[in-house]
Design a binder for these strands. Structure first.
Lengths: 333, 333
DNA sequence: GCCCCTCTTGCAATCGATTACATAACTGCA
DNA sequence: TGCAGTTATGTAATCGATTGCAAGAGGGGC
């Protein structure tokens, strides 16, 4: 007739033992006598006892949880990374919890950066303030990184990846190549733009026309309207966009206006999210090894929690995926 | 020269007060003398003290966190719902944490269903075992629901929504209409199929041909290959798919094989995820009020945590969104 | 000068589990 | 019988913050 949740002492009393014994049955069964163990287990069933996690966390000084800070959950780019993390963390005894840095207020986010809240943090958002993160919970950075913040990073070589993409377009014969960049201030934006510039310069081509973007579908659509507004003779014949989501928006708008891809414009994306292989035309893009990024980040974090990790980089290889959205330019000049 | 994290007692000693006073400065500043407060605040700064959450949770018997259990984070359908939740939960003092029921092991999921881990649970996955959820943390169901599990539900009328979709196709003149359903055993699958059947029967049309699916893009593509394998005279002229993701896959495959939408087949989706308005052709679909679903679910949960909630349903209205993927059938017979 | 009231602050119990240490019971061997 | 060694269990301190209760200080009225 007790209304409160049963505590360990309720179980102990029912089984006629001390709380210590009950605790041992739960965490170290083999050191308890078989008969006693049976008694305690039965008492646990009867009372429906479930250990209080807060008390356990306080005592153990660990939470058994890892929090991933994601800049934008609506971007399907992240889901496979998260799956990779969970695949490594679960067997190691950690729960993966996810928080969206956009929807949660900036301030409340740092509440996660507490050892008493999470055993570790995987940060996928490079715009978080470095100084707030310092000297707290172990942190690993993945995909994006925070300049001046020393922590293990798991990433790709964004500059090289952009070079790969642009050289493909150059190889097809394009000479006027545009870039749609990511949000201002983002480290990926810088790196991918730099790679684009490098590749063009290396081939003696003019600097790219750059359209603003923010990785979102809608910003890709907007870039398309700007591209469409250019006189035909000035229009870049190929566009390299810093995310697949933007490439989708770009192609959608271009097609909506009656033009065809790749006949009228070649389009390269970045990320290789699942969707883009099913589009018409299927998108040529740079594949990031998302699952591997997640797994590596989780491994690095576990190592760091154990205390033996160095703040160095793990750089994973990308892959150029050629599909149907890129082709030689219509007329060669 | 202390290596350990500062505790409240370290602050108290430095400021020359008791731990009680430090605690009050943090939680109830106005009852502390201004000068004492200043002293304590300075000591907090100097030591870099941050309260231990585990201890606080144990004492308060609350965690300040709410966990959302999502069946598939890679589906962008959920992100806006989660944003809606966070928008309501944050001002109410709750953090929103998200877990993917696919990637986390089934067993470890129920660890979240503990009052000592989370103050509440928003379940978006109807396939979780009801008996495990009972008598634990307050639960609210959203979108999907668990048969036989009494909890507040926030949902749409899926059957009515399917009727809306199919009647649109019938109104365009289609008579052979197919349905691509969701995963077996899912409550949404049943409801949307039932609505499809109802609408056709109400208009004296034959029962729909049903293709298997699981809401995923790839299963939509697969349904398209089955559709394409049918003799032209038997092919349904319109297809209603139980998710937008499947509709994307379906259209992609159909276009890939050289057919055109809606010329050769009309396609209706379900959900109205952001992407589908940018596709070519833009998808006609059923819009779920995703943000509102999230907000309502959060409100219901907060009420339930406060203790005064009834396990009744909140049903939100859907909207028929007509775009370019549906048109009258090519030849009328 | 005395009493009451308000404002501040400290003391110590408390949240619920874990675990180092102590102790008791039992075995086996000299 | 006595002692060392092993096994099983209980006692009580501990994790770190919160908060009810008590008490001291200071002010005002009579």
């Amino acid at each position: 007739m007790q209304h409160h949740r049963p505590k360990i002492i309720d179980v102990a009393r029912l089984a006629g033992v001390s709380t210590a014994t009950v605790s041992r049955v739960l965490s170290n069964p083999q050191i308890v006598n078989a008969e006693t163990r049976r008694l305690v287990e039965q008492a646990i069933c009867e009372t429906g006892y479930r250990p209080n996690q807060a008390a356990r966390n306080l005592r153990h000084q660990r939470t058994g949880g890892v929090v991933a800070l994601v800049p934008d959950l609506s971007n399907p780019f992240f889901s496979q990374i998260l799956a990779g993390m969970a695949a490594v963390l679960a067997p190691a005894g950690y729960n993966l919890l996810i928080a969206d840095t956009r929807t949660e207020g900036r301030g409340s986010l740092l509440r996660y950066a507490e050892p008493s809240r999470a055993d570790g943090l995987i940060v996928l958002d490079g715009s978080l303030p470095a100084d707030e993160l310092t000297r707290r919970t172990p942190v690993v950075l993945a995909c994006e990184w925070i300049p001046g913040f020393a922590a293990p990073r798991v990433k790709i070589d964004n500059r090289q990846a952009a070079i790969l993409a642009v050289e493909h377009l150059i190889g097809l014969g394009h000479r006027r190549i545009a870039h749609v960049e990511g949000p201002a201030g983002n480290v990926l934006t810088e790196a991918r733009l730099a790679g684009t510039r490098d590749a063009l310069a290396a081939h003696g081509l003019p600097a790219p026309r750059v359209f603003a973007g923010d990785f979102s579908l809608d910003s890709g659509r907007h870039a398309a309207t700007e591209w469409l507004a250019l006189p035909i003779t000035e229009r870049p014949t190929a566009v390299f966009l810093a995310s697949d989501a933007m490439a989708c928006g770009f192609i959608g708008e271009v097609q909506h206006r009656g033009l065809k891809v790749p006949r009228d414009v070649s389009v390269m994306g970045f990320d290789d999210i699942e969707l883009v292989s099913h589009m018409a035309p299927a998108l040529s893009t740079i594949r990031q090894p998302r699952e591997a990024i997640g797994r590596q980040a989780a491994h690095r974090l576990i190592a760091r929690i154990a205390g033996d990790a160095q703040p160095d980089d793990t750089v994973l290889p990308v892959e150029l995926v050629l599909r149907a959205s890129t082709a030689p330019p219509a007329e060669s000049d």
